[in-house]
Structures are given as structure tokens and as C-alpha cells.
Write a protein that binds this DNA or RNA. Structure first.
Length: 353
DNA sequence: TTAATTTGACCAGA
DNA sequence: TCTGGTCAAATTAA
């Protein structure tokens, strides 16, 4: 039914990505542009790149919207206690993206904020302090006893809120049923530049030390970041994307610069880095297409998450850190690489309203 | 001294 | 009026 058109959209996206890749290669000067000076390239080239990016996003959005339409709340019940690969961490992912995004407008103050929740299983004694590493620095700004809940809810905002106007917040609350489970609800997206730079610098390191993509698959198992890096509302799709809150041309330009930098690191060297979905709904939907469509993870314990690739666990917010290592699958013959953390398919999928 | 956390008060939506 | 979310002063930690 819709699968054909979804695949078609994805194929189109791939073609556009190829074009963009070629475009970037052809337009790159002998000396690679720095992240801060990449915007100095010809404006026409820049514009066409932008147009390509928009097309790519459009195709992916269509595909994901189709997926979304055919897969609403398919699974929210399974709760695999997937162990971490190295077993050295104190935290453990219980489930990811357990709750579908709640796009209800919570209040006037945050009426445009998308929400999504994850559950994280923690060891006894782990405080409900929201300090579990998820790639962001959070500052607690409040705590409330919630009616009907055994445990108080902690409110956290991005540390860079005041400096950079980052509006990302999260709420951390122990589950009533299982105090070992933290329910973390994220709201808003990170717009803090430091966050982006962290991605890039970390990934730059990774890329420099691990040549092929496959190398990225197997490395970087940061215990504290095992848990989850899951984000973001749909407006995050690209870091330079269509966030309503980051619509200024300067921001856009900055982010495009970041994007260029990404290509320097990732595309020019190796094609696109891979991505992986974190939402079980996406995974199950894709898997339902065809057994051959995706080669599922071989990890038997991680049945709730399908990772297209585990790569740099420092992808921070945009991707969910894997609980286990899985190989990079080939989707319908596509070498389905994407723009790394710049493209958040998961959010795209889950946050489309 | 600076940054982070705590906690009571305030605000807005239901 | 109740409740959840946020603010901001006081407190604590680094």
C-alpha cells in the first residue's frame, strides 16, 4: 500500500543526498573549509545546497509521515530490559520512547513544546536527580509533588537557557510501579550552540580515529551515555532546520555552517554516517515492510529498539544511544546513511503532528 | 566566588 | 479552586 510510496520517497531522498554530496565535493576548495568559514563559499552554491537539503527533508518527512499515519501507538507496552553491552554501567535502559509524543499544549508558556517520554531503569539508590548523562547539561529549577504520584517530579532546564535561550526542559519522575524506573519527559528542543559543537567535536574525534563507518558501529560505548539520547521534537530534524524558535537567518546560517562542517568530517571521508531509529514504532513498522527490508539487530535482548547503527554515542540528544551494538543495516539496497545527528528521523517520525 | 540545588510563592490553564 | 509548571531567593556545593 503506502510502502511503495514510502520507499519511493526514501529513494528520492537518497538521490537528493547524493546530489548534495556531489555538489559539496565539487564545490569544495582544495583547502577544506572550516566550520566557521564555510559560509564564505559562493552564495549560489550555498543556495542550491540549501534547496537540496530542503528537498531531502521534504522527502523524508513525507515518508515518515506516511509511516506515522500507518503506525500510531503500535507498541507502547513492551518493556525489554536490555542490558548494556559492557555491563559496566549503573543505569540501564528499560525502554525508549515508550510513550508517544504528547503534542497537547501543556500551557500557554510552553504551548509549542513537543513532548516525549522515555523510561530509564536505574539501580537502587540512584537519586531522582536527573543527573543521568544524556548528553546535555541540565539545571534543576523545581520539584513538585504530583497528585496521585508517589514520588515528586523534578524539573530541569537546559543549563544554557539564559545564555543561549535554549528552551529544552525535562521532567524526571520515578515510576509509581517501579521506583527503579525513571520517567523522563523531554520538552522542547535544544538550541544551544554549545550542544551542537559538542557533537561536532566529539564526532570529529571519533571520525578521525575510526575510518570507515563500520568502525563507528562498534566503538564508543560510554557507560554513562548508554541510557538514552533521545530527542527531539520534529522541529529539530536538522539542526539547521525549521525550528520555529530558530528561524532567524543568522541562526540558520550558523547551523548551516555546522552542517557544512559535518560534511567535511563525515561525508567527504566516508559518505554519510549512519543513523538509527529509536522509536519502537518506527522499527516495528519498518520491519513489517519486509524481513529483507531491514536486517534487524542481532542482539536478542534488545527487542524494543532497532538501531540502524550504533555509532558515536555522543550524538547526544538526537539519537538514542544503543543498548547493544548492532550492525548497520542496508535498507532496501540503500546504503541508508544520513546526516548523522543532524537528521533525526526518530523525532521526525514521532513528533509529526 | 561561582554555579547548582532547594523550596516556597506565583502564574495560568482546566 | 486545584494542579502543574516556572520563578527566584536562600542555601549548599565545588
Amino acid at each position: 500500500m503506502e510502502q511503495v510510496s514510502i520507499v519511493g520517497e526514501l529513494m528520492q531522498g537518497k538521490e537528493l543526498a547524493k546530489k548534495l554530496f556531489e555538489h559539496l565535493n565539487s564545490s569544495s576548495s582544495p583547502s577544506p573549509p572550516s566550520s566557521s568559514s564555510s559560509s564564505s563559499s559562493s552564495s549560489s552554491s550555498h543556495e542550491s545546497n540549501e534547496a537540496l537539503i530542503e528537498k531531502i527533508l521534504s522527502t523524508y518527512e513525507k515518508a515518515l509521515t506516511m509511516l506515522n499515519n500507518t503506525n500510531i501507538m503500535k507498541d507502547s507496552s513492551h518493556c525489554s530490559s536490555s542490558s548494556l553491552a559492557n555491563g559496566s554501567t549503573k543505569n540501564e535502559v528499560l525502554d525508549k520512547e515508550v510513550v508517544a509524543p504528547k503534542n497537547k499544549e501543556v500551557s500557554k508558556k510552553r504551548k509549542t513544546m513537543s513532548m516525549w517520554t522515555k523510561q530509564v531503569k536505574v539501580c537502587l539508590g540512584t537519586a531522582i536527580d536527573g543527573s543521568m548523562e544524556d548528553g546535555h547539561s541540565w539545571r534543576k529549577y523545581g520539584q513538585k509533588d504530583i497528585l496521585g504520584a508517589k514520588f515528586p517530579r523534578g524539573y530541569y532546564r537546559c543549563t544554557h537557557k539564559h545564555v543561549q535561550g535554549c528552551l529544552a526542559t525535562k521532567q524526571v519522575q520515578k515510576s509509581d510501579e517501579d521506583p527503579n524506573v525513571l520517567q523522563i519527559t523531554y520538552k522542547g528542543r535544544h538550541t544551544c550552540i554549545q550542544q551542537v559543537n559538542n557533537h561536532l567535536s566529539k564526532r570529529a574525534t571519533t571520525t578521525a580515529t575510526s575510518k570507515p563507518n563500520m568502525a563507528l558501529l562498534l566503538d564508543h560505548h560510554h557507560p554513562q551515555e548508554e541510557e538514552i539520547k533521545t530527542e527531539q521534537p520534529h522541529e529539530t530534524i536538522l539542526t539547521f532546520g525549521s525550528s520555529p524558535s530558530s528561524s532567524s537567518s543568522q541562526e540558520l546560517e550558523d547551523k548551516i555552517d555546522d552542517f557544512d562542517f559535518d560534511f567535511d568530517l563525515d561525508i567527504k571521508e566516508n559518505i554519510f554516517p549512519s543513523f538509527y531509529f529509536t522509536s519502537p514504532t518506527i522499527v516495528s513498522e519498518i520491519e513489517s515492510f519486509s524481513p529483507e527490508f531491514i536486517s534487524p539487530t542481532t542482539n536478542s535482548e534488545s527487542n524494543s529498539i532497532f538501531h540502524f547503527q550504533t555509532s558515536d554515542s555522543d550524538f547526544s540528544e538526537n539519537v538514542s544511544a544503543p543498548t547493544s551494538v548492532s550492525k548497520s543495516p542496508i535498507i532496501a539496497g540503500l546504503d541508508f546513511h544520513s546526516f548523522d545527528d543532524k537528521v533525526d528521523f526518530d523525532n521526525y517520525f514521532s513528533m509529526n503532528s
